[in-house]
Deep mutational scan, measured.
Amino acid sequence: MASQGTKRSYEQMETDGERQNATEIRASVGKMIDGIGRFYIQMCTELKLSDYEGRLIQNSLTIERMVLSAFDERRNKYLEEHPSAGKDPKKTGGPIYKRVDRKWMRELVLYDKEEIRRIWRQANNGDDATAGLTHMMIWHSNLNDTTYQRTRALVRTGMDPRMCSLMQGSTLPRRSGAAGAAVKGVGTMVMELIRMIKRGINDRNFWRGENGRKTRSAYERMCNILKGKFQTAAQRAMMDQVRESRNPGNAEIEDLIFLARSALILRGSVAHKSCLPACVYGPAVASGYDFEKEGYSLVGIDPFKLLQNSQVYSLIRPNENPAHKSQLVWMACNSAAFEDLRVLSFIRGTKVSPRGKLSTRGVQIASNENMDAMESSTLELRSRYWAIRTRSGGNTNQQRASAGQISVQPAFSVQRNLPFDKPTIMAAFTGNTEGRTSDMRAEIIRMMEGAKPEEMSFQGRGVFELSDERAANPIVPSFDMSNEGSYFFGDNAEEYDN
């Protein structure tokens, strides 16, 4: 993207840094990872977990959730003011799984939030270390993106479920800051804005008074975040219109849905970061690795190297396929839920299948599930090659597409044709070009129609051997075009429920 120079890199967003050079960025990201790792080690000690239990991804998720809940100030305040039966607002906890007599047992633990905050700050040299908290939120978000298709949420806001490739980060909490905003897809931002506008339509006082002023500035800020994701002048001009509207209503909703559809071809720039579970960072720190000293990046080879040398386990339900569970977590670790499966298959070195073909449910185990038949197995999170994460949407291309997802959002900077089903997408653009945004709409449609099938995206960008740390010898991959490109292809993934 041309304006790259004016933006802070995501590592800076990730670490609240002012302008830093590459070495400083690597050190501050490393410091953040160190903090998460030290916190995780301490929690495993508190909970008396064995090494194996500490490497269980379900335990990692519970521990991450506990610290996120302990620092969720708004919710904590709300819980104190609106006490609900049987919930102690000062405590947080969740299921911890232990191996007892050759069987997995679930144990519900409860801790004072104050105590968890103390352990977290102690692991982070006394700081609140917001960057580390956001990092864990993005890992949870990436896992949700890989596990669930947001059909219901899309339909509720009037969008087409086939636009799911635009929904990265749709389950990120509001408090995820600049680093969170960077990884949100165009569809996620559109959905947040539509929800806001709908509230304004239904509630006369939404934009009024002292609160209304705050609401208005939040609305304009979200519009600017979305505008910054678009790469064409016409899309940005249309966002200006939406932002400046005196009284946002149905016309703005129409414009936003139009823009979301246009992003299936004229893709937005959305950041991709490899955020790993805390149970990967903990053992690495415990083994003596100093992330701050060595430096770390979320968008280069580092996460690949770390996963190459990590042992992570997962509980497996009786009829689940461990290899499929591994694929789910591998995609989440690489922030690749909406990437082209052919690119992923090449990088991973084994075939990556669409969601609907995987015999696996989510990673988390519900409290009512029976533990008797639970097994555990090693997650295979290694890769054959590594590639640089991208934040450009890439230019655009036609490809055989599917009944489910009709476009992709690249996660890796790797040369390819970008699949999208042009006739299906263009069919949504018939007729409606009147109104105050008509010239911009016409211009956007013209650009979409001009998108050429034979153009290559990320020209000359390749993948790298894991021994090639400096990215000196790019390998331009070859793809098996007979395979499906979309992950949520004609899909039956479970729906995400809060």
Results as ranks from 00 to 15, higher is better:
Asp88Lys: 01
Ile33Asn: 05
Ala442Glu: 03
Met137Glu: 12
Ser60Lys: 12
Ile119Trp: 08
Gln20His: 04
Arg99Pro: 00
Leu47Met: 13
Ser478Lys: 11
Asp372Ile: 03
Arg382Ala: 04
Glu380Gln: 15
Asp160Cys: 13
Arg342Ala: 14
Leu256Thr: 10
Lys273Ile: 10
Asp160Arg: 03
Leu381Phe: 08
Ile116Cys: 14
Leu143Thr: 06
Met167Trp: 07
Gly200Phe: 09
Ala373Tyr: 06
Asn473Ala: 02
Arg156Glu: 05
Gly460Gln: 06
Thr171Gln: 10
Pro83Ala: 14
Gly282Gln: 08
Arg382Ser: 04
Gly132Leu: 06
Val29Ser: 07
Ser383Thr: 15
Ile41Phe: 11
Ala271Thr: 05
Trp330Glu: 04
Ser28Asn: 15
Gln398Lys: 15
Ile119Val: 14
Gln405Phe: 05
Phe206Thr: 03
Tyr289Ala: 12
Lys351Cys: 04
Gly460Leu: 12
Asp439Gly: 01
Leu259Val: 15
Asn334Arg: 00
Asp127Pro: 02
Asp372Phe: 07
Ser478Ile: 02
Trp104Gln: 08
Glu339Asn: 05
Ala179Lys: 11
Lys273Asn: 13
Leu418Met: 15
Ile41Tyr: 09
Gln311Ala: 05
Ser297Asp: 03
Glu14Ser: 01
Val109Tyr: 01
Arg121Ile: 10
Val242Pro: 04
Phe39Glu: 04
Ala27Trp: 02
Met196Pro: 02
Asp480Glu: 11
Gly356Thr: 04
Ile33Gly: 13
Phe488Asp: 01
Ser402Thr: 14
Val352Leu: 15
Phe258Asp: 03
Arg150Val: 01
Glu18Lys: 03
Val463Lys: 07
Arg117Leu: 13
Ile25Gly: 14
Leu307Lys: 06
Thr146Val: 08
Tyr40Val: 04
Arg246Asp: 01
Ile201Lys: 04
Met136Tyr: 04
Arg199Glu: 07
Asn395Pro: 01
Arg204Cys: 11
Arg118Phe: 06
Gly228Arg: 11
Met32Gln: 01
Leu418Asn: 04
Lys90Gly: 13
Val476Arg: 11
Ser245Glu: 06
Tyr10Gln: 07
Met481Trp: 15
His140Asn: 11
Arg199Trp: 08
Ser482Leu: 00
Ser353His: 02
Asp16Met: 12
Val190Asp: 02
Val29Thr: 05
Leu143Pro: 09
Glu292Thr: 13
Glu434Thr: 13
His272Arg: 08
Thr62His: 06
Leu328Ala: 05
Glu115Met: 09
Phe458Ser: 10
Val183Arg: 03
Pro283Thr: 14
Glu469Lys: 11
Arg174Val: 05
Asp491Asn: 13
Arg348Pro: 06
Glu443Phe: 01
Tyr52His: 04
Ala123Pro: 05
Gln42His: 12
Tyr385His: 08
Ser383Met: 07
Pro248Trp: 14
Arg461Val: 01
Asn125Cys: 14
Gly450Ser: 07
Pro283Trp: 11
Asp16Asn: 09
Arg199Asp: 02
Met159Thr: 06
Tyr313Cys: 09
Arg216Phe: 09
Glu375Tyr: 05
Ser217Phe: 07
Gly282Lys: 07
Lys351Gln: 13
Thr6Asn: 03
Val408His: 08
Arg195Phe: 09
Gly177Asn: 04
Val29Arg: 07
Asn334Gly: 08
Arg162Tyr: 09
Gly185Ala: 12
Glu434Cys: 09
Val476Glu: 12
Val299Lys: 11
Tyr219Trp: 14
Glu484Asp: 10
Ser176Lys: 05
Gln459Asn: 13
Leu49Phe: 14
Asp88Ile: 04
Arg38Ile: 11
Met238Ser: 12
Ser314Gly: 12
Gly209Cys: 07
Arg416Phe: 01
Arg208Val: 02
Arg152Ser: 05
Thr134Ala: 13
Ile257Glu: 06
Thr378Pro: 08
Arg55Val: 07
Asn334Ala: 12
Pro477Gly: 00
Met440Lys: 03
Met239Arg: 01
Phe346Gln: 10
Phe429Thr: 00
Arg75Ser: 05
His272Gly: 09
Leu133Gly: 03
Glu375Pro: 02
Ala218Thr: 15
Ser141Lys: 02
Gly185Asn: 06
Ile253Trp: 13
Phe479Asn: 04
Leu306Thr: 14
Arg199Ala: 07
Asn483Lys: 15
Glu11Leu: 03
Val352Gln: 13
Phe258Arg: 05
Glu18Thr: 12
Lys229His: 13
Ser392Leu: 02
Asn247Tyr: 12
Gln241Val: 02
Ala366Cys: 02
Glu469Thr: 08
Arg355Pro: 08
Ala284Val: 13
Val414Arg: 00
Ala427Thr: 14
Arg361Met: 01
Arg361Phe: 04
Ile63Thr: 06
Leu108Met: 12
Gly35Met: 05
Asp72Tyr: 09
Asn59Val: 07
Tyr148Lys: 03
Ala237Tyr: 02
Val280Asn: 10
Met32Tyr: 04
Ser28Arg: 11
Arg150Ser: 10
Val183Met: 09
Met440Ala: 14
Asn224Trp: 09
Asp16Trp: 02
Pro83Arg: 09
Glu18Ser: 09
Gly282Trp: 08
Met456Leu: 09
Pro477Arg: 00
Cys164Lys: 09
Val408Tyr: 06
Val285Tyr: 11
Pro318Arg: 10
Arg55Glu: 06
Thr424Ala: 14
Asp290Ile: 04
Glu434Asn: 10
Pro248Gln: 13
Gln149Met: 09
Gln235Met: 05
Glu375Cys: 14
Gln459Gly: 15
Val329Ile: 15
Met371Val: 14
His140Trp: 08
Lys214Tyr: 14
Gln58Tyr: 11
Ser310Phe: 08
Val242Glu: 11
Val329Asp: 08
Ser245Asp: 00
Met137His: 07
Glu339Ser: 00
Glu254Thr: 10
Arg75Gln: 03
Arg150Pro: 10
Glu210Ala: 02
Gln241Glu: 10
Val414Ile: 14
Gly169Trp: 06
Ile347Met: 13
Lys214Gln: 14
Tyr40Ile: 02
Ile119Ala: 14
Ala493Asp: 00
Met374Gln: 11
Arg384Phe: 12
Asn224Glu: 13
Ile253Glu: 11
Leu49Ile: 14
Val329His: 01
Arg156Leu: 02
Ala373Pro: 13
Met447Asn: 09
Asn142Ala: 10
Ile201His: 02
Ile225Ser: 12
Met448Trp: 03
Leu166Trp: 01
Thr437Asp: 15
Ser402Val: 10
Tyr496Thr: 00
Arg213Leu: 06
Asn205Phe: 03
Ile25Lys: 10
Trp386Ser: 07
Ser413Ala: 09
Gln409Lys: 00
Lys184His: 10
Val186Tyr: 04
Thr6Pro: 00
Leu47Lys: 07
Thr378Phe: 03
Ala237Leu: 02
Gly349Cys: 04
Val155His: 02
Glu495Ile: 02
Gly462Ile: 03
Val270Gln: 15
Gly268Asp: 01
Asn205Gly: 12
Pro283Phe: 13
Glu294Thr: 14
Ala179Asn: 07
Ser335Asn: 10
Ser457Leu: 14
Leu379Gln: 03
Met1Arg: 11
Ile138Val: 11
Gln12Lys: 15
Thr15Gln: 05
Thr23Gln: 14
Gly126Trp: 02
Ala373Trp: 10
Thr437Met: 01
Ala337Pro: 11
Leu56Glu: 06
Arg156Ile: 09
Gly460Val: 00
Met159Leu: 15
Ile119Tyr: 06
Gly431Met: 13
Met32Leu: 03
Asp112Pro: 08
Lys293Leu: 07
Arg400Phe: 06
Phe338Ile: 07
Phe291Tyr: 14
Cys275Val: 11
Asp16Ile: 02
Pro283His: 10
Ile347His: 03
Ala403Asp: 01
Pro161Phe: 00
Tyr296Asp: 11
Ala260Asn: 03
Leu143Trp: 12
Gly460His: 09
Asn124Tyr: 13
Asn21Ser: 15
Gly295Thr: 08
Tyr97Gln: 10
Tyr281Cys: 09
Asn334Leu: 01
Ala471Gln: 01
Ala181Asn: 09
Met196Thr: 10
Arg446Cys: 05
Leu381Cys: 10
Met196Tyr: 07
Ser141Asp: 12
Arg355Gly: 04
Leu298Trp: 04
Asp127Arg: 11
Lys77Asn: 12
Arg26Cys: 01
Ser359Gly: 02
Tyr313Asp: 04
Leu193Lys: 04
Gly30Glu: 07
Asn202Pro: 01
Ser457Thr: 11
Gly35Cys: 09
Ile96Ser: 07
Ile406His: 09
Asn370His: 13
His135Leu: 05
Ile225Val: 15
Thr151Lys: 12
Glu254Phe: 13
Ile96His: 04
Glu465Gly: 12
Asn498Trp: 00
Leu226Trp: 12
